[in-house]
Amino acid sequence: MNMMATLNLRAMVINDNGQAKTTSYAVAQAFGKRHSDVLRSIKNMKCSHSFRERNFALCFENNKLQNGKPRKFYQMTKDGWMFLVMGFNGEKADAIKEQFIDAFNWMANKLTEVFQSNWARYNKAVGYRDNRKQQVSCSARDMNNWKHEKNPLDHEIAKLEEALQPQLNLVGGK
């Protein structure tokens, strides 16, 4: 069976607040492993506590098959994923690793494109606002028009500034 033909690894890499991530479910599916075996591999990794905290987030979801009993899984970064799958070997595993790396890089490029697009829109809006402000400041009759343009421009600029801010995920108020 050609597992690569049936998998879309790009769909297994998600955007989580601007960072490319995947899950232990995706790893199990891609490598043809039982999810419990992937969970055990994550649990048995010999990495530092800080690396584990940065790259593996323990999550839970309701298991509909067991009356809503929570089922755990991990969400992981590209670094976490790479650390986990380094031990997976064989020609098939190597091919899947390569495709997963391509999928992570594809998602990172998409996130960069969104950032650059927002940055370009931000610069255009700020430049336009500053030029219009200068133009209308000399003309009392244009001041009335400016009142209607200023608030939407300021609102768009504020939204873009928020989108361009880096997100800090602080755990436990540290």
Results as ranks from 00 to 15, higher is better:
P152S: 04
L65T: 12
N62R: 03
N109K: 13
L168G: 06
A140T: 11
F115K: 15
G87A: 06
R129P: 07
Q134P: 02
W81M: 11
I157M: 07
M107G: 03
G87K: 04
Q167L: 12
V114R: 15
K147C: 03
A103L: 12
H155K: 14
K147R: 14
N145G: 01
L84C: 03
L153N: 08
L164M: 03
S139A: 02
F73N: 10
Q134V: 00
Q134S: 11
N62K: 15
V114H: 10
Y122T: 00
E61Q: 14
M143F: 05
K97E: 09
N123I: 00
A125H: 13
H155T: 08
Q167C: 00
L84M: 09
F60I: 04
P152N: 04
L160H: 10
A158H: 08
M86C: 08
F83G: 00
D79N: 10
S117E: 13
N151P: 00
A120V: 08
C138Q: 15
L168K: 11
K69M: 13
K150N: 05
L164K: 04
W119R: 13
L164G: 10
N67R: 08
V171A: 00
E162R: 13
N105T: 09
W81Y: 15
N151C: 02
F100V: 04
L84P: 08
N105F: 04
K64L: 11
N63P: 05
P152T: 02
M76N: 05
P152D: 04
N63L: 04
K69Q: 15
L160K: 07
E156S: 01
Q75H: 10
N118H: 11
A120Q: 12
C138R: 14
Y128N: 03
E113M: 02
L168E: 15
V114N: 08
Q167M: 02
Q135W: 01
F60A: 07
A140E: 12
G90T: 07
G87T: 11
N131G: 09
V85F: 10
T112M: 14
E98S: 06
S137F: 11
M143R: 15
V136S: 14
M107R: 15
Q99L: 09
M143P: 01
H155A: 12
E161G: 03
R71K: 13
I157P: 11
P152E: 02
D94T: 08
K97R: 12
V126E: 11
Q116S: 09
Y122P: 01
M107N: 05
A158T: 05
R71P: 00
K147S: 02
S139E: 06
Q135K: 08
R129C: 01
N151F: 07
A93T: 03
A108W: 02
E113K: 09
F88R: 12
P70R: 12
E162L: 05
Q135F: 00
M143V: 01
A140K: 13
N144E: 11
A103Y: 14
Y122H: 14
F115S: 01
L160T: 06
A125E: 11
Y128W: 14
Q165R: 13
A163L: 11
R132S: 05
F88A: 03
N145F: 12
R121I: 00
K78T: 00
N151Y: 12
W106N: 10
A158Y: 05
D154Q: 06
V136T: 14
Y128K: 07
M143H: 12
E156W: 01
E149M: 05
P152H: 03
E98C: 00
N144D: 09
K64V: 00
